Each structure stands twice: as C-alpha cells, then as structure tokens.
Amino acid sequence: MPNPLQYNKKFDELNEEEKKLLGINKKTIADFVEQSSSISDVNYATRNAHAKTYAAAKGTFWIEPDIPELLQPYFDKEKFDLTIRFSNAQLKIKNTRKDIPAYGFAVQIKDENGVLLANYPLVNFPLFPINSVSAFLKLFTAINRLYMKQWRNLFTMFLQLGKMIPSLFTGDMFRNMLKLIGKRNDFILSFDYYSVGAYRLGDQVIKIKLSPQSVDKNVGRKQKVKDSLQNYLQTNDFSADVLIQVCYDLKDQPINKLNVEWKNTPFIKIGEVKIDKNSLLDSRNCNTELLSFNPFESKIFFQPVGKIQKLRDEAYKVSVQTRRKINKLLHGKNG
C-alpha cells in the first residue's frame, strides 16, 4: 500500500470571487433562519438545511479491537459516547406522510468526560452534484431568497441549475441516482450513510461510510418516516459498521471533485455504531433543536477538507449563531 496523501491547507483555499459570494450567501442564511419559523410554520427557528428532525438518540461508538496501527492514536479507547440526529435535507419542514428520501444521520462523538471530539453530518447519497464553488454559492443564495419570497431570484436559480447539469453526467452519479430511486420507499435505517466530502484524520485525508447491519428495508412502509423511525428505535437495537477510505492519490481519490466516488482505496472497518432500544431523546425539547453538528467544531485533526466543505464552515456558524440566539429567546419565554 502506498503512503497516505498528507493534508494540505491548499485543499481548502477559496479565491477572492468565492470569498465575496460567500459573504453574500452568509447574509441570506441569517435572513432565512430569522424567518424560518414562519417559512416552516413552527414555533422555533430551524436549521438552514436538514431542518426537519425525525428523531434524536444516544448511542455508542465501539472501536474494532484489531484496528490498523496507523489509526490507533485517534481511537485509543474501547468506546465513545454518541448523540445522533436523524433528519430530512429539505430547508422547509413539511407535515407530509411522504418525504423525499434525502436523509441525514448526524453523529456527535464525545469522550468519557463529555468533551466534544468530532461531528460528522452523514447523508444517504455519497456524491455532491456541484464542483464549482461559485455556482453552488449563487444557487444556494437564490434558493434562500426564493424561500423568503424574493421571486426575482427565480431566473438565477434556474441558470445555476442549468450549469449544474453537466456534473450530473458521471457514471458514478448516474448509478447512485438510479440506486436511490430504487430505494426511495425503503426504511430510513436501511440506507448506507456517507460523509460525501473528505475529512482529516490527523495528517491523513479520509471519507466515511456507515453501513447498517440487518435492517429490514420494508419496515414502516405505510407510516410517516418519523413514526416508523421512532417506533423502531423504541423496540429494536440498531447497529451499523463504520468504514473509512484513505486518500493516497488525488487522481483516484479527488478531494474537490465530489461527483465521483473514490477508487482504488479499500474500505477499512474501524468500529460499530450501536443504538440500544429506547435510547431516544425528546425531539420536541428545545434543547434538542439547539444541538449543533457543525463538523468544524470538531478537534482540528478530525475537521473537514476541501473547498465545498470550507463553505459549510461559514454557513454552519451563521446558521447556528442565528438559530441559537432566536431559540434561546423563545426557550426563555416558554420556560
């Protein structure tokens, strides 16, 4: 096996145009969150993405006893405590029986003293359809503004969606879209979950995959996603393998090209996520909504890598700060 590629901060650097567009985008994020309670018709400020919480639960990350020596410094305990949030990717919360199958499995890892080690917001689609930072920022800004009924941004949104089309035509993207369509009615816990972008593991760069063990895809077919998930977790234990891929060569494992899968790097099992039955948290509790799964709050050697990931750093900060400010005020009124 060749030596892993070393992390370099150049992987994350934005140019001046991208920084300017990011500043504009951050303003629309703050505006969206401030208006989010009326956008979603709820009594709290929501997240700017993955607004809908299906459930939150406590879990445990058990480390493989024979983990490769290269990885041992980062996983030096037998187990770690987890807080997990299950969500839907849409910006607006809709009270429908059928949601689009764009699910989130966000994991917060803490040590035995309750010190935060890492946040990993995982999703059930392994790729991202936009490689251009500028195109993504313009599209996301236009979408935020449309939700706030600024209809003049409709043309901008369609223009940026048009620019996105060529990046959809990779074999990996096409194959995974067909797979998702085939699984669209499957139970939320039967999906694999992915980091999409890359993360640091010390000086190495990795991607993460979470693969559930023996979950029936037909669970709760006639129920709302939220009800089927909560019913399952109240009466069943859940286990999933945690796998990583290591970056060795940017040609086969590109960091800033997110519409292709990494090739020629094996999946390495590093442990298992376990949720014991009846470990649910109260998803209606304001403190649950105040939880943050910002991956940039992680220890420095677990943080995200790449330009699209760098955008998420600023977006998370603005969204979390605005959301916490509003929800703490609301929580104080209701408390």
Rank of each mutant, 00 (worst) to 15 (best):
Q309K: 10
A135H: 13
C247R: 09
C286S: 12
E261P: 07
F75G: 03
A198E: 03
V196G: 02
I93D: 08
A49S: 15
T46M: 11
G171K: 10
Q253R: 08
N15V: 14
N264Y: 08
I326Y: 06
R47E: 15
P254K: 06
K226R: 12
S298T: 00
H50F: 13
R85G: 01
K183G: 06
N176R: 10
K19R: 15
K110W: 00
F301R: 10
Q72V: 11
K79R: 06
W62N: 11
F86R: 02
N131Y: 10
P166W: 07
N48V: 14
P166M: 09
K263T: 14
K94L: 13
L116Y: 10
N218D: 11
L243A: 02
D172W: 08
G59K: 02
D227I: 07
V215L: 05
A315M: 14
P129Q: 11
I143M: 08
V42H: 10
N218P: 06
P254F: 02
P68I: 06
T156V: 08
L139E: 01
K183W: 09
F61K: 02
Y44Q: 11
K224F: 05
A55C: 05
K94D: 13
V273T: 00
N327T: 11
G162H: 08
S134V: 10
L229I: 02
R284K: 10
F158E: 05
F80C: 03
N25A: 13
I270A: 01
M1L: 10
V133S: 01
E297C: 08
I268M: 03
D66M: 11
I29P: 00
L258M: 14
L139V: 03
A51Y: 00
F174K: 15
N113K: 15
F11W: 06
T322I: 08
T83S: 14
P212I: 04
N327L: 13
E261D: 15
L229K: 03
M173T: 07
D99N: 09
I181P: 03
Y194I: 04
V225I: 06
K307A: 01
K98V: 14
K163F: 13
M164N: 09
K163E: 07
Q309I: 04
V205T: 08
F293E: 00
K222A: 13
F140S: 04
D252H: 14
R323C: 07
K98W: 09
A102Y: 12
K92L: 11
N256I: 07
A89V: 13
P73W: 09
E69P: 06
N176Q: 14
K333Y: 13
D276P: 01
G171V: 03
M157S: 06
A55L: 05
Q321I: 08
Y232K: 03
G306K: 00
E17D: 12
F75V: 02
K26G: 09
L180R: 07
Q309A: 14
V246A: 07
N278P: 05
L201M: 13
N8I: 04
N144W: 06
E314D: 14
G182W: 07
I24P: 06
L178P: 01
T288H: 03
L329S: 15
K251E: 15
